[in-house]
């Protein structure tokens, strides 16, 4: 399973170093004088093949030393349309900065365009909903991983033959969405039955245990969205291996230097309760 192998490779480098260094290294919090920058817009747009409404969130960056409160952008003009002439202007909900669709319904194999106008600037993005892929089975496996033995969820599903498919998984444990971004693509196994292990990468991920209710969402995403999440994952997976590589902002599918993404996808879910 290609994706899985590549992911473990990155892991291994990290643990390879940490194995050696754990005996010598030490950490401390330091003060770094960082430049202040003008706020930049962050757009998070989602539409899928499930029933609406769909939401678009507009916020801003803050300076690094500020608390994690990100100013929302109110009063923007937000519009989503598809390539069949359907068009929906979003309204701002009671939560400032969060805009919702009124009637638009996401359909498979349609391409959607998001348009945001605020502060005299226009931001555009397009994304396509591909056909949904059903999860066949979810299994639990004990895996011996670099960070120790862990219970890992394996997702099995049938890949769509004849084209490159990109997948994103969301793991929900006892109704809590887990932070790790799990991605897969079918590079070597087009049209085959795929089995992907969802290995946690963030320390905040909870370890799964008996009696947990676990829901897996399988999103069939498009190439650009996959590229966005892949680069976000790379940036945010942390670890010493990144210490010297040059970090860059994730590759957004929105123009005009906006941060964030617009994801049009189909999704399916499956839930199990651990024995």
């Amino acid at each position: 399973m290609k994706t899985s192998i590549l992911n473990i490779v990155k892991f291994k480098n990290y643990f390879l170093i940490s194995s050696i260094l754990i005996f010598f290294s030490c950490e401390k919090v330091v003060d770094i004088n960082l430049n202040e920058k003008d706020p930049q817009i962050v757009i998070e747009g989602n539409i899928n093949d499930q029933a609406g409404p769909y939401f678009v969130k507009l916020s801003q960056t803050v300076n690094y030393d500020q608390t994690n409160e990100f100013p929302e952008i109110s009063g923007a003009f937000v519009l989503i349309n598809d390539n069949y002439g359907n068009l929906d202007t979003l309204f701002e909900t009671v939560n400032p900065g969060i805009y919702a669709t009124k009637f638009l319904q996401g359909e498979n194999e349609r391409t959607y365009t998001l348009k945001v106008v605020t502060n005299g600037k226009e931001y555009l993005s397009t994304s396509t909903i591909h056909s949904p892929v059903q999860i066949d089975t979810l299994t639990i496996e004990n895996q011996s991983l670099p960070m120790g033995n862990k219970k890992v969820i394996n997702v099995e599903f049938q890949d769509v033959a004849g084209k490159t498919n990109y997948y994103r998984f969301i793991k929900i444990v006892n109704n809590v969405v887990q932070p790790t971004i799990y991605l897969a693509e079918d590079l070597t196994q087009d049209g085959e039955k795929l089995k992907v292990s969802l290995i946690d990468k963030k320390s905040e991920d909870v370890n799964i245990k008996s009696k947990d209710t676990i829901t897996i969402v399988l999103e069939s995403i498009d190439e650009n969205v996959h590229a966005y999440f892949k680069s976000l994952l790379k940036l945010n997976s942390g670890g010493m291996i990144n210490q010297s590589s040059t970090p860059t902002n994730p590759i957004s599918n929105i123009n005009n230097n906006a941060l964030g993404y617009f994801n049009a996808c189909s999704l399916t879910t499956k839930t199990i309760i651990l024995p």
């Binding site: 962050v42 300076n63 990100f70 969405v177 932070p179 999440f229 860059t248 941060l259 964030g260």
Partner: peptide, 26 residues
């Protein structure tokens, strides 16, 4: 060494993400 540090941060997909501007500016 010349390195790239974040000049800001933002929230996306439920995560705090660093915002980078100038290359090797630190």
């Amino acid at each position: 060494n010349a390195v790239t540090f974040p000049s800001g941060k933002y929230e996306v997909a439920g995560q705090i993400v660093n915002y980078y501007t100038e290359r090797n500016g630190y």
